[in-house]
Structure formats: C-alpha cells, structure tokens
C-alpha cells in the first residue's frame, strides 16, 4: 500500500489577522500541520478586497482581488481562516468579475478550491479525528481544566458559505473544551466592517446584546471563525473588563486552555 499524497493547502491570511492578530495565523498553521497538511503561504498576498467591495468601491476591490487570483491561481486548495473573506473569494468574486470573462473564469475556478479553515479541518479527518488532542490539550484535560466555550456563528460563514454544524462539531469533539449554548447565536454582532463606525449607535446596541448573550451563556471563552467579529466582541469585553476571552476557533482547537 502506498501512502496517500499529503494534502497541500495554500494559506490566505486576512488583513486583520496579519496586522492585528498574527497569533491566530500561527495557530491555524499549527492546527493544519499537526494534521499532516502541508501549508504554504503564497507571497504577495495582502487583502481579499472585501472592505472595498462592501463599501461599493468595486474598481479598487478588483485591484486587490486580481492579486489574490494571481497568488492562488495555481494552488491545490486555498484555506482562509475567515468566513467573511472566504465568502468574498468563493461567492462575491464571481459577482465582482461578472462582466470580465477571463477573470470570471479564474474566480470560478478558485471558488471551487476555497476552504474556510474549519471546512478543511472537517474534511481532513472528520470531526472526531480533527479534534485529536494536542499534547497541551491532553494535559489540560487531565487536569480537568475544561474551557466553557460559546460559539458565535459569523454571518457570512453561516449564510454565504453555508457552514453551520462543522465548527460546533469540531469544538464538541475537542478535548479540553465544553461547548455551552449561546442564546440567539445567529444574531449578527453588529460589526459589518465600516458599519461599525458609520452607524456606531446601532452597532453598539447589537454588540451589547451579543455580549449580554455571551454572559448569559456562562462561557469563559467566546469563539468564532472570524477575527472581525471577535475584534468587535472582544473589544467590548475588554472595555467592560469582563471575565471572558474572545479567541479564534483555531486558537481554541490548538490550545483550549490557552
């Protein structure tokens, strides 16, 4: 019997992770490598263009999207630790390039190979195996130090990429993690990119309700697949000095006790 060829994944790091939360990227790489995925990080990547696209500046968004196509055209699969950027690349690039046949062809071809981080984990070894504990996790489990984790399903992951169950399955199967119910989980946290600063009065209300739900859940950690939402939620938690941590799902899976 021959060994199956190792999976290769080319990593796209969102601009928020690159600039503000590099540790999340490190956890993503570790989690994938631990599962035998060969990870590379194509040079020259910066931002998928979503902030511009969402603001209506499609000409500028295209400039960035073309760079992503250039960097990832040849990859076996692309892994994106964000439902929001993942949706941009998988779904919205095809809207963006609707009138440009050659770019549209490239966008459509790439869209077939885009994986949001948890989608890839789920595919690699199924939820049960995906959560094979790291040494750290095994130790913390032994110490009965189990993190109560609430999962916030980010909107684009949920409704554009259609990822509903996967992340929860991964968390539930992970040792050192106990998943608690988040009330009204599917309610948007109020981030919405520029929305948060254009209409802060509305955004802050949505955020306050999300934080309230997290407190009600009794979680010590709130997690999601998007650092945008977590920057927003975590920002309020930090401001209010609440005893809850906001961590990307890659960090929780990599090191539940963190």
């Amino acid at each position: 019997m021959t060994e199956p060829a190792p999976r290769r994944a080319s990593l796209f790091i969102t601009c928020i992770i690159d600039q503000l939360y590099p540790d999340v990227g490190v956890s993503v790489v570790r989690a994938l490598r631990r599962r035998g995925v060969m990870v590379d990080f194509p040079a020259g990547q910066t931002c998928c263009g979503q902030p511009l696209y969402n603001a209506g500046f499609t000409a500028e968004a295209k400039r960035l999207a073309v760079r992503v196509l250039d960097a990832f055209d040849d990859c076996e699969r692309m892994v994106v630790p964000s439902g929001s950027c993942g949706a941009m690349i998988r779904v919205f690039y095809q809207d963006l390039f609707a009138d440009e046949p050659e770019l549209l062809r490239r966008a459509a071809a790439l869209s077939e190979r885009v994986y949001e981080f948890t989608e890839l984990l789920t595919e690699v070894d199924g939820a049960a195996d995906a959560a094979a504990p790291s040494d750290d996790a095994a130790q913390s489990d032994a110490g009965a130090d189990v993190a109560a984790v609430a999962y916030h399903p980010s909107c684009h992951l949920l409704r554009e990429m259609g990822v509903r169950r996967g992340p929860l399955d991964l968390l539930e199967a992970a040792s050192g993690v106990s998943v608690v119910d988040l009330p009204d989980a599917e309610q948007c946290c109020g981030f919405g990119g520029a929305f948060a600063v254009k209409y802060p009065h509305i955004s802050e209300q949505m955020l306050a309700d999300k934080v309230e739900a997290i407190l009600q859940s009794g979680a010590a950690t709130v997690t999601a697949c998007d650092m945008g939402c977590l920057m927003h939620i975590g920002g309020a938690i930090s401001r209010r000095g609440l005893p809850v941590r906001a961590r990307h799902i890659a960090q929780v899976l990599d090191d539940p006790a963190g």
Partner: peptide, 17 residues
C-alpha cells in the same frame, strides 16, 4: 468612532507575514 465603546488591539511588533 470605534473606541467609544470598544477597545482595539494595537498592532503587535510582528505581522503574521
């Protein structure tokens, strides 16, 4: 407009890149 209700992490010394 962001920081009225939320903190923001300062960019750490090294980026992911």
């Amino acid at each position: 407009r962001w920081t009225a209700a939320r903190d923001l992490p300062a960019p750490p010394a090294r980026s992911f890149s």
